[in-house]
Structures are given as C-alpha cells and as structure tokens.
Simulated assay, not measured.
Amino acid sequence: MPATQLSSDGVMGNEESEISKNCHIYLICERPAISFDKNDFSYDGKAISGSIIYKIDGIDFREKFTQEFPLLDDAIELKLSNYPHREIQTFNKRGECVRYLPASALSLAYRADSHDHIFRKLKVLYVGQAFGNGSRTAQVRLKSHSTLQKILAEASYNSPDSEIFVSTFEYPPYRLFTSLDGISKGAIGDKRDSARFVSIIENPLKTNEQISLAEAALIRYFQPHYNKIYKKKFPSMDLKVLNRCYEYDYSALFVEINTEELELSLYSESISPAMHHIANIDLVDHQSRSSFFHMPGYDGKQVKFMPAIGSANNDEE
C-alpha cells in the first residue's frame, strides 16, 4: 500500500484486516510516483482512457491505458483529483467522493504482464517488525514510526519523483531442515548428535524469536539504506536475537521472502530485482567445523554448496 494510506481514514475489509493482523514483518519501499495526464484523460460513461506519467532521474515517461470503469455506489460524476492528479474520483449527487482509483494501483494492473517493468519493482529502503505483544499490526506501528517519517521527509526532498510504499508479510511457523555428512571421518556419531537434534525439536523458538530472526536476516540480505543494526554484524554470538540459535546449536538460517502472488519484484542497492529471495545465513565457522552450506569434499577440503529447499509456495522439502 502507498504509505499515505496509513494516515487516511480508510477501513480495510474483514478479510484484508484479518490478513493484516498476521503480518508483522514490513518493508518500506520506493517506486516512481505515478500520475494521470489531465490533457488526454477521458471517460465515455463506460471506460476511462488516457496516459499515466512518471519520471526516472528527471526524465518523463508515459504509458497509455484504457480501463472499464462503471459508476458505482450512486455515483453520478467522475473526475481527476487536483494536481498532481494522482487519483480518479467518483462523486454522488451530494458532491461526496464515494470511490477513487489511484494511478499507482492502475499502473500495477496495467503492467501485470511485464515483470521487468519499473512499475513492478520495489526498492527496499527499510526492514522492520511490529510484533509487540502479538496484537499490534505493522500498520498501527507505522502510523507513528519515526523512521518512516524520516524516509517520507527525505524522499520528498531528495526523490520528488518517487512514492513510498509499505509491504507487509506473514511468516508462518518455521520448518527444520537437516543434512547428513556421510564423508567426514571426524563427524560426531554418538549420542551427542541425536541429543542435539532432540533438544532442537523439544525447545521450539517462540513466535517473537522467529519474527526477530526473519527481520535480522532480511536486513543482512538486502542491506537497506535506513537500517543500522544487522547490516554488517549478523550473524554474531554477541547478538541477543541469536542467543537461542547458539544455545541449541543451529547450523544455519534460511529466510525466504516471496512476492510472486503480487507479481512484484523486490530489490536494493546490493540485490538484483526478483520475486523470490532467499537469505542464507551460516551460524557456524565452516573453517572450524562443517556447516549447513559447507561440507568436506573427497579431498578433505571444505566445499560450499546450496541445498535445494524449494519456493515459498512449495510445501515439499
């Protein structure tokens, strides 16, 4: 959603509201600001048509569109909002605005077939969480979030052709993956190995711990401009967020983020655009012991590999 909607009086539907309550990881992102060109906008009673316009590095771009647009909820009139013409609005006979269509929303629907288009790319500026006591949603926290206000202020000054969006994500209970080393002669093969695995099973991470790990791994992965912690010193045994992982001797952490259902790509200054990202975090020093991503090869030297764990929409392991 556009960040401006966080301070609006809009109300989510019941289904959307329920989904929102389960989303405690949020990304603050940037995308070109989209407007309607009032000079070629038209409405024939059935469909709207015209151009949506945007800028990249000060250079003007435009995309033609035609879209069916019936008047609903007793609306009798349709017109563009005032400059910069970011919305199409409909009004009833009392002059009340009953519906609106942002140019940003139209641009997403119009370019759904082109995943490489700038409309479908969100640059990650900040990763955060709004877990609290489990009842506070990302939207509630962000309404008074100082970093969001800073990003909005700096964007209006440094990036006047951009718009700030907020994307929220739900992380269901984590899954455990195991790997077996059948090559190393020095691998532990007694009860200590099975006891370690049983300990991990019997002491599951709490929900707030899972959310904190997801946040930290995504920050380390995307290296967002406005995040300060976890960008360089993650993982580290000094970090409280990893205490339980080290206590029970987890070897690695995978955190996925998937925007395929939205048909949007996420990227940052250090990560290329993609709809599916996996942050792979080694929690052990592979120089001193085999890790999840490193195993001894036939010559005894450590070999790095990437286990196949499937996409976020795939339940098979």
Rank of each mutant, 00 (worst) to 15 (best):
M1G: 07
P2F: 06
T4L: 03
T4Q: 03
V11S: 03
G13A: 08
N14H: 12
E16Y: 09
K21V: 04
I28C: 01
A33W: 03
I34V: 11
F36T: 01
N39W: 09
K46D: 14
K46G: 08
A47T: 12
I48R: 02
I48Y: 02
G58D: 14
I59S: 14
E63Y: 05
E63V: 12
K64W: 07
Q67T: 06
F69L: 05
F69C: 10
P70W: 09
D73V: 02
D73Y: 03
D74G: 01
D74T: 05
L78N: 06
E87N: 14
T90C: 01
K93P: 03
K93R: 12
V98W: 00
R99C: 08
R99E: 09
L101K: 01
L101Q: 04
A103T: 05
A105P: 01
A112V: 11
S114F: 12
H115F: 13
D116Q: 15
D116G: 15
R120W: 07
R120M: 06
K123H: 15
K123Y: 14
V127K: 01
V127D: 03
G128W: 01
Q129V: 05
A130P: 00
G132A: 13
R136S: 08
R136W: 01
T137Q: 06
R141V: 07
K143N: 05
H145K: 01
I151Q: 03
A153R: 11
S156Y: 02
Y157L: 14
N158E: 14
S159F: 15
S162P: 09
F165A: 02
V166E: 00
V166Q: 01
S167R: 00
L176G: 00
T178N: 03
L180Q: 07
L180R: 12
L180D: 05
S184D: 15
G186F: 10
G189D: 13
R192K: 13
S194G: 02
S199E: 06
S199F: 00
I201R: 02
K206I: 00
T207V: 14
N208M: 08
N208S: 11
N208H: 14
Q210M: 13
L213Q: 04
A216P: 03
R220D: 12
R220W: 12
P224W: 00
P224H: 00
Y226I: 05
Y226F: 14
N227Q: 06
N227I: 02
I229D: 01
K231A: 05
K231L: 03
K232I: 09
K233T: 10
F234D: 01
M237K: 15
L239D: 02
K240Y: 02
V241R: 04
E247A: 11
A252I: 14
F254T: 09
V255T: 15
T259I: 10
E260F: 07
E260I: 12
S265H: 10
L266A: 07
E269F: 10
S270H: 15
I271F: 11
S272Y: 13
H276V: 11
H277S: 06
N280C: 15
I281T: 13
L283G: 11
H286I: 07
S288C: 10
H294Q: 10
P296E: 14
G297T: 08
D299G: 06
Q302Y: 10
K304F: 15
M306N: 11
P307S: 08
P307W: 07
N314R: 07
E317Q: 08
